[in-house]
Structures are given as C-alpha cells and as structure tokens.
Simulated scan of single mutants.
Amino acid sequence: MDLSQQYIDKTRALLTTIEKQKTAILQAASWFSESILAGRMVHVFGSGHSRIMVEEMWPRYGSFPGFNPIVELSLTFHNLVVGANGQRQAMFLENVPGLAPRILRNFELSEKDSALIISSGGCNLVPVEMAECLKNSGVKVVALVTLAHANESSSKRADGKKLMDFADLVLDTGAPVGDAMIDVPGLDTPVAPGSTVGGAVIVNSIKAEVAQLLTNAGRPPKVLSAANKVGAQRATEIFESAYDEHAHRLSKLYAKVGIESYVSRES
C-alpha cells in the first residue's frame, strides 16, 4: 500500500476545499490590506503548532511588513518536549483563562487593525479569548481552523463558545477530524496531519492577494527576497527597509498604550 501516494492524494483534496473558499480569502485580504494601507497592522496569533502559520505570514522570504506576529514562547516552545519548558506546561497554559487579555495589554489596538487567529480545533481558551478581546476592540477577526475537527471538539470555555463564535470570517484548512489523514495497516491511530498544509496554502493565498491590493493602491510591499533572485545589494536594501517599516508600524502599537505618561503625551 502506497501511503505516501495516499497522503499526496488527500492533500489534493485539501486544495479543492480551499479553492471553494476563494471569496472568503479575497475578503480577508481586503480587510488586511485596508489595515496595512492605514499604517496599522494585522495581528496574527497562534498557540501550539499553530505558531507555524504565524511565522509563515511574516517574517520570511516572500513576505512583507504589515503583520504583527504574536508568538508567546510559553505556548509554543515545544523543542524540549518534557522537563522545564516542556509540552505539558504549554498545553496547560493554552487553557489558562485571562492570559489572552494580558498578552494584548501590551498593545494599543485600533478599529483600523485586523487579525488572523489560527487554531485547528478552535476550542482552547487562549486563542478563543484572543479573538474575543480583539473583536470587542472593534478589530475585524479572521479565524483559520480545521472546521470538521472544530465542530466535533468541545470548547474549554464554560459557555461552550469556540473561536468561530468570535470571528467575522472563518477559513477552513480542509483537514479531517483529528487532523491525521493516513490509516496504517495494523496501527489503530492515524498519522500524517493535513492542517499545516492547508493552513500554509490559505495563508500564502491571502498574502498574494494582499500584495496585489497594496500594489494596486500605489503602496507596493517590501517583499523579503533572496539575493539570487534580486541581487545581493537589492536583497539587503529590501531586508533593511522592510524591518524598519515593521518597527515603524509596531511603534504605533506602543506609543500610547495603557497608562499615560509624559512620554506618551509628547509623542
């Protein structure tokens, strides 16, 4: 039995599911481009494995400033697996109430902002509360979930609400319940998840549409590019200017945050 071929075939099925969401992808791109053109940012958050999609959006080759990657190490650092900073603690912290608003306390939010919250199951407390807090601040929230899995999962909240309940728009990776897509003969648990593949396709589809919208608006993005594509000098110039633009955008989130001081009054 050719299991690798099965995985490839099932991945093609994910693409079919994603292709049916092109209208929603365009809507997300429209909201995100509006935030970026306004000089603001798109807040991108994911805990656990969903961190991958955050970093897929920015910063990496083929990406550009305008996105605020919110990655908490306590929720995403899995390399040690056990012991100090291990996986058990990270999974515990994903369901600690009140952590999301403490994270967002660091930023001055605006109704001009938008957000992408990634959570395959859509049920852990921190991403759900993150979406809730952002929505309550007037921020447009796009949720990236595995819809079949999320619908079959139980929310960790007492009221039963899930990430989708606080989203203005929901995008689906297309992966199955449980995420893993391949049944191995003699093994009673499936392997080889699909949400990362589906999520990466959706994230980069949005990214491409945003780039076109920014370019059409006369604000072409500073796209991080390889030296063997644009030349060493040009690549360095783009990296430096893109990182500086990120800093300029980020500074707006800090300048007047929280309790007023003489510094914030003068800024």
Score class of each variant (00 low, 15 high):
184 V>E: 06
211 A>Y: 10
194 G>M: 00
212 Q>E: 15
193 P>R: 04
212 Q>T: 11
187 L>V: 14
177 V>A: 13
213 L>F: 10
190 P>V: 06
190 P>C: 10
204 N>Y: 10
210 V>I: 15
213 L>H: 14
184 V>N: 05
195 S>T: 13
189 T>P: 03
187 L>C: 09
185 P>C: 09
210 V>T: 09
172 D>G: 11
185 P>D: 15
177 V>Y: 12
187 L>K: 13
191 V>E: 06
208 A>W: 07
195 S>V: 04
177 V>F: 12
179 D>R: 02
206 I>D: 00
202 I>N: 00
196 T>Q: 09
175 A>Q: 02
201 V>M: 12
184 V>T: 11
211 A>V: 10
207 K>L: 13
189 T>V: 15
197 V>W: 00
208 A>V: 11
194 G>Y: 00
177 V>S: 14
200 A>Q: 10
206 I>Q: 02
192 A>V: 08
190 P>I: 04
210 V>S: 05
208 A>E: 12
188 D>V: 06
174 G>W: 01
196 T>C: 13
203 V>R: 00
214 L>W: 12
181 M>V: 04
212 Q>N: 15
199 G>Q: 03
173 T>L: 05
209 E>W: 06
175 A>E: 01
189 T>H: 12
197 V>M: 08
182 I>A: 03
187 L>Y: 14
208 A>Q: 12
199 G>K: 01
204 N>W: 06
194 G>Q: 02
198 G>F: 02
200 A>S: 15
180 A>P: 01
207 K>N: 14
210 V>E: 02
209 E>L: 11
196 T>Y: 08
193 P>H: 08
188 D>T: 09
206 I>G: 01
214 L>A: 13
211 A>W: 10
202 I>W: 04
192 A>R: 03
177 V>K: 15
188 D>W: 06
172 D>I: 03
178 G>W: 00
207 K>S: 14
181 M>C: 05
202 I>Y: 05
199 G>T: 05
193 P>L: 04
195 S>Q: 10
188 D>Y: 06
186 G>I: 03
173 T>S: 10
172 D>M: 05
185 P>A: 14
193 P>K: 04
176 P>V: 06
206 I>C: 04
180 A>V: 05
197 V>G: 01
207 K>F: 06
192 A>F: 02
187 L>I: 14
182 I>M: 04
212 Q>M: 11
206 I>W: 00
208 A>L: 11
183 D>H: 14
175 A>K: 01
180 A>F: 04
199 G>A: 12
177 V>H: 14
188 D>Q: 08
208 A>I: 12
213 L>S: 11
180 A>Y: 02
211 A>H: 11
185 P>V: 13
189 T>K: 11
179 D>G: 03
203 V>P: 07
174 G>S: 10
184 V>P: 02
172 D>T: 10
194 G>H: 00
207 K>E: 09
193 P>D: 07
181 M>Q: 03
173 T>E: 03
200 A>R: 07
201 V>I: 15
182 I>L: 05
208 A>K: 08
178 G>Y: 01
209 E>I: 07
172 D>K: 06
191 V>L: 07
196 T>A: 15
201 V>P: 03
213 L>G: 07
212 Q>Y: 09
